[in-house]
Design a protein around this nucleic acid. Structure first.
Length: 412
DNA sequence: AACGGATCCAACCGCCTTCCA
DNA sequence: TTGGAAGGCGGTTGGATCCGT
């Protein structure tokens, strides 16, 4: 059997934590930081095992944990991701801003699970598990619903077919129930206007499908105060991802993003576009190539590297604009899952623990590495010289939700 | 008011993975 | 390369609370 539980040691308390124990643990970690759990109890003066301390900290005491009732949006996220990932609670929890894996797990087991399959796996739901009955697609070819493209659609469709045919070439209406539309209509409602999104599915002569999602946005200074150095600021951005099935369980993935704006707006829009892209396709399938950004004067043409491991991209994708790379489906899924398992940084975590807001140069400064972080600094000179560094990318939240967005806006 | 079943959720347990000497 | 230590994860438990009878 496994190793002897550390909690079996004599004299160690078990069960519910007292307020006094909480205070001791919190104070110790606040002073010394996380880690070294095995020796922490002795150093902190707690009669608990290290594991118990770690769990108590991770699930209860750690600052920033969101507790209480799950919102309908969070619930849908859990249902959607569980359909894809199964009981990968830690991965699912990373898509739920400030929720712990334990809480997500409990919520699933106590609420969602018992609702039965009728609601979750309803025929109209885009998140239902694939069943044998689902193989009733025409002649083995898969039809893609172009108004509600989801990870599940992509996974189920591509991983079970050699050919993909199109159903329609269409634009998704704003009333669509896709995740993208939710984000656009709810999460970004105070940030962008107007917003339009176009999803198209086309088929080439060989019967292979290309899915493209483009996002057009405009940022208004009335709704978003990007930087005190800018009085008015508008921007537009578009992002597109195309995925092509090419038989033998291989996909072609390409992604392009372009924007016209001041550098700060452009960076933000690229960030948002990136998140939207991840929500719809990138997280599971893997995101393609790089993106380009143009300054307001149209002169600057810059490539932004989205292949950083801090984005949910397949690391092997090169940075060339419009590049197309071929992948094996299984490799992609494995890679995507692996990347989601990586430690992600929350925006507010950096703000609260490591960063100082509004430094002398009116920029957001990361205490841990001030030399490379000047995300908003360029706004003062008209946005002609964005400096996109790795450190900056670390600060970009990989979990895009309303809460997260609100935090971002709050700190801007 | 008392009882018992249902529900919730914090915490524990054991296995697995990662790290490092 | 290897083995032990440490951390992470998912399944499960058990106490507290809720609620209907």
């Amino acid at each position: 059997m496994g190793r002897t539980p550390c909690c079996d040691q004599k004299g160690l308390r078990k069960g519910a934590w007292t307020a006094e124990e909480d205070q001791i643990l919190f104070s110790y970690i606040k002073q010394h930081g996380e880690g070294g759990w095995r020796h922490l109890p002795q150093k902190a003066g707690l009669s608990r095992c290290g594991k118990s301390c770690r769990l108590r900290w991770a699930n209860y005491l750690r600052p920033g944990i969101k507790r209480g009732e799950f919102s309908p949006e969070e619930e849908q996220t859990i249902i959607r991701l569980h359909a894809i990932l199964g009981n990968k609670w830690s991965i699912i929890s990373r898509h739920l801003y400030r929720r712990t894996d334990n809480e997500v797990k409990n919520y699933w087991n106590t609420r969602l699970k018992k609702r039965g399959t009728t609601e979750i796996n309803s025929k109209d739901s885009p998140v239902r598990h694939k069943t044998n009955d689902d193989d009733s697609s025409d002649n083995g070819n898969i039809i893609i619903n172009s108004t509600a493209i989801s990870e599940e659609n992509i996974i189920n469709n591509y991983s079970n077919s050699d050919n993909v045919t199109k159903e329609a070439s269409t634009s998704s209406p704003s009333s669509s129930s896709s995740t993208t539309d939710y984000v656009l209509n709810r999460g970004l409602q105070n940030l962008m206007k107007p917003i339009s999104i176009t999803t198209t599915t086309t088929t080439n002569s060989k019967g292979l499908a290309t899915i493209s999602t483009s996002l057009d946005t405009e940022i208004s200074s009335n709704s978003l105060q990007m930087n005190k150095g800018i009085s008015t600021d508008t921007a537009s951005s578009s992002v597109s991802t195309s995925i092509k099935a090419c038989g033998d369980d291989h996909l072609n993935v390409s992604r392009t993003t372009s924007s016209t704006a001041s550098a700060s707006s452009r960076a933000l829009l690229n960030k948002i576009a990136s998140k939207l892209n991840q929500i719809n396709l990138g997280t599971i399938i893997g995101m393609g190539s790089g993106c380009s950004g143009g300054a307001r004067d149209g002169v600057e043409h810059r490539t932004m590297d989205y292949s950083s491991p801090n984005f949910c991209c397949t690391p092997s994708i090169d940075d060339n604009i419009n590049s197309i790379t071929s992948y094996n489906v299984e490799d992609l899924l494995e890679e995507a899952e692996c990347q989601q398992s990586m430690e992600m940084l929350h925006f507010d975590d950096h703000i609260s623990s490591n960063a100082t807001l509004e430094a002398e140069d009116n920029s957001l400064v990361d205490d841990t590495n001030t030399s490379n972080f000047n995300y908003f600094d360029d706004a003062k000179d008209g946005g002609q010289s964005a400096n996109i560094s790795l450190d900056e990318q670390l600060l970009l939240p990989n979990h895009f939700s309303m809460d997260c967005l609100e935090d971002v806006l709050r700190y801007m």
